[in-house]
Design a binder for these strands. Sequence first.
DNA 1: TATTTGCGCAACTTAAAGGTTGCATATATA
DNA 2: TATATATGCAACCTTTAAGTTGCGCAAATA
Lengths: 105, 105
Amino acid sequence: MKQDIFQAISDPTRRAILTLIAIQALTPNAMAEKFDMTRQAVSKHIKVLHECELIKPEHSGREIYYHFNAKKMQEFDHWLAQFRQNWETQFNQLDKLLTTIKEQK
Amino acid sequence: MKQDIFQAISDPTRRAILTLIAIQALTPNAMAEKFDMTRQAVSKHIKVLHECELIKPEHSGREIYYHFNAKKMQEFDHWLAQFRQNWETQFNQLDKLLTTIKEQK
DNA sequence: TATTTGCGCAACTTAAAGGTTGCATATATA
DNA sequence: TATATATGCAACCTTTAAGTTGCGCAAATA
């Protein structure tokens, strides 16, 4: 099944993996040591992250180092962009309101 | 159950609702007309979005207009921030590589 | 070569999530 | 006041997702 990037980051364990990976590439075993679950469980999360290209494997003998794919993470940024103007507007309106209250004093 | 903002946006229907709401506040019925599902199904999505404060209700008689809460959406932006530096770095490295290749020609 | 180690795949269990229908409540309108 | 409309809540069904155990394969090592 083709994974969805939004669904991929909805899981807290996967978000933790991404945070780890963003600092340094790790093998599945290395990741599993950080979490209170079996290696296979972590491996399933890796599969999800890999399928939606949030991480990239680098083979080194029988070990696999997974790297963070920042480019893919930018898809969020693009999705968020549609709301960015929205919250800037809301804050400008808040500023106006605060200024008005100030002037009334 | 306290809803998680990441889990809330993982659903495509809820993302569509947010996109609609960001432009204009809507009632549950108005939203339901946009989707191919029952009003109750949409209502459950509204409940999820409301519990994690991504939308805010405004009562008007027997109708309820739900507004987009941009401030809450910024939580994503903050989470993304930890990766932003990361992808900027990766792109700088790409720039360096391209420059090197150019110079070799 | 025999054995250990790192990894992925498959089958299974359990919990959660998205959808439905039905019903209760509050407001608007005839 | 009687009726229609807008909404939320509860019960139920079905699918999916997260976790487990067990197994097979490839690479490193004794």
